[in-house]
Design a protein around this nucleic acid. Sequence first.
DNA 1: CTGTGATTTCAGAAATTACTGAAACTAATG
DNA 2: CATTAGTTTCAGTAATTTCTGAAATCACAG
Lengths: 173, 173
Amino acid sequence: MKLSTSMERFILHWGEMGSRWGVSRSVAQVHALLYLTSEPLHADEITDTLSIARSNVSMCLKELQGWGLIKMTHVMGDRRDHFRAEQDVWEVMTRIVEGRKEREFDPLLITLQRCQEEARADSTTDPAVAQRIGAMHDFVHDMTSWYDQVRKLPRPVITKLMTMGAKVARFVS
Amino acid sequence: MKLSTSMERFILHWGEMGSRWGVSRSVAQVHALLYLTSEPLHADEITDTLSIARSNVSMCLKELQGWGLIKMTHVMGDRRDHFRAEQDVWEVMTRIVEGRKEREFDPLLITLQRCQEEARADSTTDPAVAQRIGAMHDFVHDMTSWYDQVRKLPRPVITKLMTMGAKVARFVS
DNA sequence: CTGTGATTTCAGAAATTACTGAAACTAATG
DNA sequence: CATTAGTTTCAGTAATTTCTGAAATCACAG
């Protein structure tokens, strides 16, 4: 497939973002390409378009499926697997955030919990240190439980809250 | 300085987090150490405690100052620079989020804007592609402007909104 | 069961990123 | 102004991560 300038720019920047967001450049590029393309693509088409190794494309597709960002489909009369990305931006972001939460914050919280218990039990640890570990734990805990509540709200409600922006403050007396 | 088990665990995990969050392991470790320690430390103490090169400690301290996470202080009768981390968890997180926003989202938004204009102007780009680039742009734009508004609210208001959790939904009819 | 096309695995290569240590620099002190 | 304690720079090295390509595996049609 031939990419237009803007598609190319989008894919390249998304690739850069990816490497800052815990997926490799090529995973993010494959995702960007599939996001921009509405028709399902098969692996060889991706290989040609992005000029990366066929095997790498396989790995990327697998990882993206793990993130729930793409799904496999089949085209009538074609034996090859085809892939199609979630097209809804909100859904895309939700899954990315959800994935990062599971991969980063859940383990962080477990470690912090453990540090906290350990610090309190251990008499050689300065209570002030235990207190600071506790403060960090509580913060992360509060953040994740806030997130867990809010993400379950119906999407229109969240959208509305967002468009209200700072105006939500008026409800806090 | 001798680290207790829980301090060590905290510092090591924070280091791992760092490498996923766009700073090197050692930057994050230095930050964790200073966060846990209330007294200002000088570079040699950090070098010994974390067993990393003196020069690397210098670089880490510089970067952390760039993030606004630590500041230099001086101890009476000691010529050496000492460093003290922000102890308030909320402040720590605010600065990290703020830094990442500037480093990642602001440039992303600029690229998306450019892609969008380019895609619309260019007749070879499928309008559906332009539409998807636009959708991504709008999403990121809405997100950042929501963030810009909310972060300016007084902290107690934000705290209150967070403890309300999903209950904010009741204000949306 | 066999042959063909598609996919996955994995060891090594390449690229990227982080770290070290020696040398250069800076500034306070006597 | 020479000495000394402290800091920074930077070129080279080490570690890590990512990518490639050949080989193995899989799965379906005939």
